[in-house]
């Protein structure tokens, strides 16, 4: 799956220009995180990736085909979109119906839908809630129901808008497992997130946005090495990375293991010198 964004500009009907000349390529199966302040244009950009929003100018190519050539409903076969607020997404009266809606629209056979339902309900942790009304789910379960209903469509790429919002540790761990599973299946995950711990743990690639423009796009190591640009975009690195920067480690460090390794090497060098 390859999504190319070329000179994308988007102005809302009220004249507000949310995106100005965005150029990006999403490719392969390495999960990508979109980061930046509220109002930086992340959601506006994400909503272009399956045609929910249309460019004011510029274009988006999905596997070489211009998104403008077909309706959102057609692109739903290729790119799944999970809304930030599950209440915006869920409208049926049981979890099972929510799960079945997407693949049913795409003409997937009943057997296949049933097969997927079992598998995905387990993945999102709703296997016992399939007959519940989405209204009766807890906020966390609702979020996973929304995720499950899009996973059911088995698209090559998925866009998550703020998946960690309001999640606890268990929820975050489950999300991480889902993202890693999708990556193993060769699918492209794109997520908008404010949670830098979650971003650096699960997303090898990062796109930093500010005021409708892309400031940085690259590996998490490249992006988090550019402290001055991150600061300009008001993005603070996650705790461990910050400590590493404070004590003067040259490269960004994201995990406890990597951190202790650097300290140990520094210790050895110290001994050799001493």
């Amino acid at each position: 799956m390859k999504i190319v964004v070329e000179h994308l500009r988007h102005a809302y009907p009220n004249g507000y220009c949310a995106l100005q000349d965005v150029n990006l390529t999403f490719e392969g199966s390495q999960p990508v995180a979109l980061i930046g302040q509220n109002g930086a244009g992340k959601t506006t950009l994400a909503k272009h990736l399956n045609g929910i929003l249309r460019p004011t100018s510029g274009r988006i190519l999905i596997d070489g085909v211009d998104v403008a050539t077909a309706q959102t409903a057609q692109w739903a076969r290729k790119v799944g979109y999970i809304f930030q607020n599950p209440d915006d997404q869920l409208f049926l009266d049981s979890v099972r119906k929510e799960f079945e809606f997407g693949p049913h629209q795409l003409g997937v056979s009943d057997e296949e839908i049933e097969h997927r339902t079992t598998r995905i309900a387990e993945l999102v942790g709703l296997e016992k809630k399939l007959d519940s009304h989405p209204f009766d789910l807890s906020p966390t379960e609702k979020k996973f129901c929304a995720i499950g209903s899009v996973l059911m469509m088995n698209t090559g790429a998925l866009v998550f808008d703020e998946p960690t919002c309001g999640q606890d540790k268990i929820g975050n761990d489950r999300l991480a497992a889902i993202i890693s599973r999708l990556k193993d299946q060769g699918k492209l995950c794109i997520a908008i997130s404010h949670d830098m711990k979650f971003v650096t743990r699960n997303f090898p690639r990062v796109v930093l946005m500010r005021k409708g423009q892309v400031l940085l796009a690259g590996s998490r190591e490249e992006v988090f090495a550019r402290q001055e640009i991150l600061q300009k975009a008001y993005v603070a690195p996650p705790p461990i990375t910050r400590v590493a920067q404070e004590v003067g480690m040259a490269k960004p460090v994201f995990t406890v293991e990597a951190f202790t390794e650097v300290i140990r090497q520094a210790g050895q060098k110290g001994k050799e010198r001493g």
Partner: peptide
């Protein structure tokens, strides 16, 4: 308890299990 701890505590624990001697686990930056 189903809760996470601050990353600073995790870092302290990681250093301890790598053999470093800490007086106290750090809880803030």
């Amino acid at each position: 308890w189903g809760i996470d701890v601050p990353d600073y505590v995790k870092l302290g624990r990681g250093l301890q299990s790598a053999g470093f001697d800490l007086d106290e686990l750090p809880i803030d930056e």
